[in-house]
Design a binder for these strands. Structure first.
Length: 437
RNA sequence: GACCCGUUCGUCUAUCGGUUAGGACUCCAGAUUUUCAUUCUGGCAAGAAGGGUUCGACUCCCUUACGGGUCGCCA
């Protein structure tokens, strides 16, 4: 029997990291088992559904690289995959319940009559859990159909899992107490229950429940900041799952190769955006030069910077200085354009050092007459020559020069900067700074 | 409140009765670097508490505490 899993979000907000991780575990499990991953949109709450939310789900899953085998835009033998289009199916299943006298009307709504007995589930993550339905006060008969004729979550969720042949339901722990209800419905239908795996929730750094407003909560925010989808997938996989080895950086394919429900933890995990950034840096570091440049280019252009001929060299010079691609424009800007802002603090520091001006002037007047600086070694030689002439160490010239060339106190290798900028441009920038001193 | 699930460094985690309790993020120190970043080396830091069971418990059992979840004509 082939494994069939599903992600069944309701389009009522943005795609949340918690939801993304639920989707990921379903996707990973299906891929690992050579099964089928289904996307089903649970849009039964007309009042709260929005088109933006629906689109956010598609965009988010697409960006993260989770492709679905059946679902919206893809079709499949169990469609339609929007619950809002499955009314006839639900009506038919509801009739079964009525014929079996398992529902009764209450205030216009229909309630499902629970079997008053202990219900035991065997959860793949939580183990054996029993809820006693003899205690009616704790387990009142549930509404399955509203007075307006529409069906509630429990009903449609169970019907669709049955209709779609779902073999494994992997969902958040907030559904654990719903499972015996679903088991009772399945029994009433005479169906075969899927296996359940309830995964722990994701909490904020402070242990509170993660909500949509918290930092890092919205999957849609990640692309803009320059996270790589594989890095985000890697990081959220590590929230509640472990490879049981010391390795933690995995490609999505590697995760799909190693994933198992047995290795899923039972305790909720806190979300640490710092570590997420570190994971992103690790994935960035694994990109080859061309790959990194291509991804960075998008952000650099987005920041309104020109991507010129020296772009590959410029990006190579700064690539290991960033954890997010969104940081690249700020790092390379001065290499791509002459129009960048000087850091007033850095300039003030240079101005406070009287010896710096003379050094810079000497360098600026020497540079144009020199052959083009070919590499960092050559650059150092030039600086040493100027410094020696003034009887100081090269270090005395380096900070002022860095500020002159980049407008900032910190940056990439100074020699590399000089090579990229060229003698003439270096001289211009030095003169420009000297004029400000 | 009732009913469930959980509890190892600040955080993510390894350990499936016998370990100096390991790794990673963060932080600190050192090396490299003109600077910052990167990289490398080293360091700080944990079994919630109390009872059992056992030759031996982080690991099994019980109690308490704490955390989370669920108790809708939301999903």
């Amino acid at each position: 029997m082939t494994v069939r899993t599903r992600f069944a979000p309701s389009p009522t907000g943005y795609l949340h990291v918690g939801g993304a991780r639920t989707a990921l575990f379903n996707w990973l499990f299906a891929r690992r088992m050579g099964g089928v991953f289904i996307l089903r949109v649970e849009d039964t709450d007309e009042a709260r559904n929005t088109d933006e939310a629906r689109q956010a789900i598609f965009d988010g899953l697409g960006w993260l690289g989770m492709d679905w085998d059946e679902g919206p835009g893809k079709g499949g033998p169990c469609g339609p995959y929007f619950q809002s289009e499955r009314k006839a199916i639900y009506d038919a299943w509801f009739e079964k319940l009525r014929a079996a006298d398992r529902v009764y009307q209450d205030g216009g709504a229909w309630r499902f009559r629970f079997d008053r007995k202990p219900v035991t589930m065997n959860d793949l993550v939580c183990g054996e859990v029993t809820i006693d339905y003899r205690d009616e006060s704790n387990t009142p008969d549930m509404v399955v159909r509203r007075s307006d004729g529409s069906y509630v979550f429990h009903f449609v969720n169970v019907v669709d899992d049955l209709e779609m042949g779902i073999t494994h339901v992997i969902r958040g722990e907030d559904h654990l107490m719903n499972t015996p209800k679903h088991l009772q419905l399945i029994e009433a239908f005479g169906g075969t229950a899927p296996q359940y795996a309830h995964i722990p929730l994701i909490l904020n750094q402070d242990g509170s429940k993660m909500s949509k407003r918290d930092e890092g909560a919205a999957v849609g925010d990640y692309p803009r900041q320059g996270f790589l989808p594989e890095a985000v997938v890697n990081f959220i996989a590590l929230l509640g799952w472990s490879s049981k080895t010391d390795e933690e950086i995995f490609t999505t394919a590697e995760l799909a190769d190693r994933f198992s429900l047995e290795a899923v933890n039972r305790a909720p995990a806190r979300f640490d955006i710092e570590k997420c950034r570190w994971v992103n840096q690790q994935h960035l570091a694994r990109l080859d030069a061309a790959g990194f440049a291509a991804k960075a280019e998008e952000f650099v252009r987005g920041a309104g910077l020109p991507v010129g001929g020296d772009w590959p060299a410029a990006v190579a010079l700064v690539r290991d200085r960033v954890r997010l691609l969104g940081e690249v424009p700020g790092e390379v800007g001065f290499l791509l354009t002459d129009r960048y802002a000087d850091d007033p603090e850095a300039v003030a520091k240079v101005a406070g050092n009287p010896a710096a001006t003379g050094l810079l002037e000497n360098l600026a007047s020497t540079l144009p007459g020199l052959p083009a600086i070919a590499d960092a070694e050559a650059a150092k030689a030039v600086l040493k020559q100027i410094a020696d002439a003034a009887g100081v160490k090269p270090g005395a010239l380096m900070f002022p020069l860095r500020v002159a060339l980049s407008g900032r106190a910190h940056g990439p290798d100074l020699g590399g900067m000089m090579v990229l900028l060229g003698n003439a441009r270096c001289a211009e920038r030095i003169n420009r700074l000297v004029a400000k001193l």
